[in-house]
Design a protein around this nucleic acid. Structure first.
Lengths: 328, 328
DNA sequence: GCCTCATATGAAACCGATTTCAAAATTATT
DNA sequence: AATAATTTTGAAATCGGTTTCATATGAGGC
């Protein structure tokens, strides 16, 4: 910057002001400085800027890779979400610091904040980290979480309307005249628990002798879902006629297992997945599922975090959640 | 840091040296300083550090979101790659700056480098940006590209052995006794062109009257592939008995289109995809495809870039590329 | 012509670390 | 005990910007 100042025959502060569009600098001077800076391909040193400003304009994004134990990071939904967040942050001129899998604990988060590596955090997938997040947020850390809203949460949560998602699946089953429902998912995750509750709600209101059975599936991935489904069919007396599973991949696994056991989908059983990943549409049969708007999610997450960084305390929010009617 | 120095009864430089494990500081003093720093949750300011060191320990990663015009970012393969890179960079204590979609041109890249936002670039998917990348690399920018090796490239490329990939598909078709092959892909992309050449090579060596037809598919995504397949079947005289498509999603689309036209897969036609995305295994029929080791890819990309940043000029490299035999 | 006020500019201090260089403290050598 | 060699330590300069504060310049009012 000192060089540019010399070249433009002005002082360092003037260059600084010109580059930041300060009204304190004369129009003509600014244009001159700008042209000199441009001609020399000058770019302000972000690190010096961050140091002085005490603001990084960087958002750290954490992906809970490890909650996808088996499948590691394979569920495309998380990545659509990441894409949405990336786009939203780009629009706001915020840099995106992607946190590596092994840095996903509270200490590491605090370290990033304390060392001024980022101004705040977007956590994609709260998983089983609610306690850690609670603690983290309690320190005053600016943080937004993609996950399930929680009355007691001391942090801002943005997520799918899981309860509604459960209701949508339930109503779909009612429409199809299904009476023996099966819920698949690990209800120790709040998100899945809320879906289960929404499903239960529709069941209760129908008051029609509908029963709901549960499979607590503690590991992710297609294979374990397939195995769970096969085993379930082995031990159960009466087959279910409807399945609501926690994501599309497992829904596909259930469909395959059912078909391999000679059960027709969607003839004998209706199946609803969650997330509407791209392949859901192309599976055979195309999967009826619950879609979330990942772009909206990204925008909302980014917007809320910006407000938190600016000292406000925005409320948690639910993202548009809709049933995508297909053939399963 | 000045505070820690005061608390530990030493000077600022001593604290700095203690924290960076410098041998210039006495063992006892270091331990004392460390314990004081720890007790107060102190973390060095990264920005000051980067400013002084003129090194950021940050790698910018660019995803070519836009080459996936229709599907935007839906191909899970790119994300597996991103995960691999993220992991590898994490192991090397490098931060990962994810570049937003709208920042994917050479000027923006240079801006990031000049402003010391990152030490180097990992470009995932060269797409049609070869010229830009060439120019970028010519400025001396440290850059590694995931894509297709090119004799003339002035930058380091890491990628699948596309030629071998094509050969593997060709040999598979030979094994199945297929004689009328169809190659699907946009050969204006070097990667796909190389695969096409590998396929041709097997065809030539078989010397068996095998013919290869081509569909130049200029847009990505399932739907356009399905449409292309249907249209192809409408206008063609003799149906192909083998299809090698540029990715798994399009392979699925071709299989669906063929089946909808009453053509049996794998009975009448063998289909080979590319990338081995998770759903390839669960599609019906499970898709025979070419797999690349995304973790290895991530590690190699990271390692090469580190060497480039250190002033070396490592050579381009090919990643393990293997045929995954399934039912299609 | 003198005073006030607004506008434009620059000198110097500062953000929070690291590095150079000189000085102090310790240890080894004779 | 005196000197040389080696460790340890700290004062000051530095990285590259931004901000404060004082000053210079020119316009407008009387």
């Amino acid at each position: 910057m000192a060089d540019i100042a010399k070249l433009a025959n002005v002082s360092k502060p003037t260059v600084s002001r010109a580059l930041s569009n300060s009204p304190l600098v004369n129009r003509a001077t600014r244009n001159h400085v700008l042209s000199v800076a441009n001609a020399h391909g000058y770019a302000v040193n972000r690190n010096a800027q961050k140091l002085r400003h005490k603001r990084t304009n960087t958002v750290a994004v954490s992906l809970d890779f490890h909650s996808h134990r088996q499948n590691h990071i394979s569920d495309p939904f998380m990545f659509d979400l990441l894409a949405g967040v990336s786009e939203a942050l780009g629009d706001r001129n915020q840099d995106l610091l992607l946190c590596a899998p092994n840095h996903n604990d509270g200490v590491a988060f605090n370290q990033i904040l304390n060392s001024r590596g980022a101004d705040g955090f977007i956590i994609l997938g709260q998983g089983h980290r609610e306690d850690m997040l609670h603690e983290f947020a309690a320190t005053g850390a600016p943080v937004v979480v993609w996950g399930a809203a929680d009355e007691d949460a001391n942090y801002c949560v943005v997520g799918s309307d899981n309860y509604l998602g459960g209701q949508l699946a339930g109503r779909y089953f009612c429409d199809k005249g299904r009476r023996r429902w099966l819920f698949v998912g690990d209800t120790s995750f709040r998100e899945f628990r809320q879906r289960r509750e929404g499903l239960q709600n529709v069941c209760d209101e129908a008051d029609d002798g509908i029963v709901i059975d549960d499979i607590e599936l503690h590991s992710f991935g297609y294979d374990s879902a397939y195995d769970a489904a096969s085993h379930y069919l082995d031990v159960i007396e009466t087959n279910p006629d409807a399945v609501f599973s926690y994501n599309d991949t497992s829904a596909m696994a259930f469909i395959s297992a059912f078909r391999d056991a000679g059960i027709d989908v969607p003839g004998d059983v209706s199946v609803v997945g969650y997330n509407d990943i791209p392949s859901a549409e192309y599976f055979s049969p195309p999967i009826t599922t619950i879609r979330q708007d990942t772009h909206q999610a990204g925008r909302v997450l980014a917007a809320k975090l910006m407000r938190i960084i600016d000292g406000e305390t925005p409320r948690s929010a639910l993202i548009k959640t809709e049933l995508i009617l297909r053939e399963s």
